[in-house]
């Protein structure tokens, strides 16, 4: 049986190698192993680094001792088991050491919990409303309502209030490199604080199981320098442009006077529904429907024609099957949507 511990050692070495390999390659857009992009996640990350190092140390020591014991004390000719029932001194030491390590971890953990929950006075206020299965983002002080794509200025703290409509379910707002998860609970408002430290595009997604399209409830955050952000704010503040093309005008007619307006808002028109996303500047977004589809004509046409076929559990009904639209109606509505720059 001498082979078993050796085989185990080889296995552990292999696993360690694989782990190193995994940590070495920074792969996906939601990876939070390295390169945190906000003050808050950097603090969390440094706690993690310490914890991980201690854990690896303990892992190596404990597993090493187990393997040593298995080899050293294996049954073989002449080996007699020592008959002892315990060793009070060793037991006390082995209770005190983990307690001290944990106490050492507890202090900075509690500190960081309180630091990360601080609300700075000059923060940018943002309201996140999570719905099955997309995100609404309000900037109450800037008069902006948008969906699925959040824009933040770099180096300014954003104070984010997160909730979910009372007739909806629990979701969780999470952008790995910018903030840990914070639940969106119907009837409650939670907050999180993000101070981005780098510009760029950051991906996130709903993290609390919320039904059929939980995996299709994503979001993106664009952290921009001040002037780009200001320009975006100015653009979003405008009313929607009137369509000039006749097909698009026909589409507007269908949209505003038809069922679309019951759920969607387009400022400057009579469409003022709030169930679905605000579409005033739809085309300024790169994605739609929970940031899972690229914003282009083909996808939009398929979506308006039959949303539930593209996304299971979509609240938006099928245009062709449920809303009584014809294919040419769909084309007209899409032509109108394409004008919403």
């Amino acid at each position: 049986m001498n082979g078993s511990p050796a085989a185990k050692r080889r296995l552990l070495a292999l696993l360690a190698l694989l782990a190193v390999f995994a940590i070495a390659c920074d792969t996906g857009p939601q990876d939070f192993l390295k390169s945190q992009a906000s003050v808050q996640t950097q603090k969390a990350d440094s706690l993690w680094d310490v914890t991980f190092a201690i854990a690896v140390f303990i892992f190596v020591v404990v597993e090493g001792l187990i393997i040593y014991a298995l080899i050293r004390f294996r049954q073989r000719p002449g080996r007699e088991a020592a008959q002892f029932h315990g060793n009070t001194k060793v037991e006390i030491i082995l209770t005190v050491i983990p307690s001290l390590i944990l106490a050492g971890l507890a202090v900075p953990t509690v500190q960081t919990i309180f630091e990360n929950s601080k609300q700075p006075p000059d923060a940018l206020r943002i309201q996140v409303v999570a719905k099955q299965f997309w995100w609404e983002f309000n900037y109450p002080d800037l008069g902006i309502v948008t969906a699925n794509e959040l824009h933040l200025p770099v180096d300014q703290t954003a104070y984010i209030e997160i909730t979910s409509p009372t007739n909806d379910v629990i979701h969780s707002f999470w952008v790995p490199r910018l903030t840990g998860a914070q639940d969106a609970v119907p009837g409650r408002t939670n907050t999180t604080v993000i101070t981005p430290t780098a510009t760029g595009q950051f991906w996130g997604q709903c993290k609390e199981f919320c039904g059929l399209s939980h995996s299709r409830m994503r979001l993106r955050v664009f952290v921009e320098d001040r002037s780009t952000f200001d320009q975006w704010v100015a653009d979003q503040g405008e009313e929607a442009a009137e369509p000039t093309d006749s097909l698009a005008q026909q589409g507007q007619e269908l949209f505003v006077n038809g069922q679309c307006a019951a759920c969607h808002t387009i400022s400057g028109t009579n469409a003022a529904g709030t169930t679905g996303p605000n579409l005033t500047h739809l085309m300024s977004r790169r994605t739609f429907a929970g940031a899972i589809f690229r914003m282009n004509e083909g996808n939009l046409r398929d979506w308006v024609a039959d949303a539930p076929a593209m996304k299971p559990g979509s609240i938006m009904p099928s245009g062709l099957k449920s809303m009584g639209l014809s294919q040419s109606d769909v084309d007209a509505i899409v032509a109108y949507l394409l004008t919403l720059e």
Binding site: F32, L47, W48, T51, F59, L102, L105, T109, T112, A181
Partner: peptide
């Protein structure tokens, strides 16, 4: 031992926001 160590890492609340779910 492995499960226990990863369990302790959940108690690091600021980072648990990342790990959870």
């Amino acid at each position: 031992v492995i499960g226990g160590l990863s369990g302790v890492s959940h108690a690091i609340v600021p980072h648990d926001g990342q790990q959870t779910d």
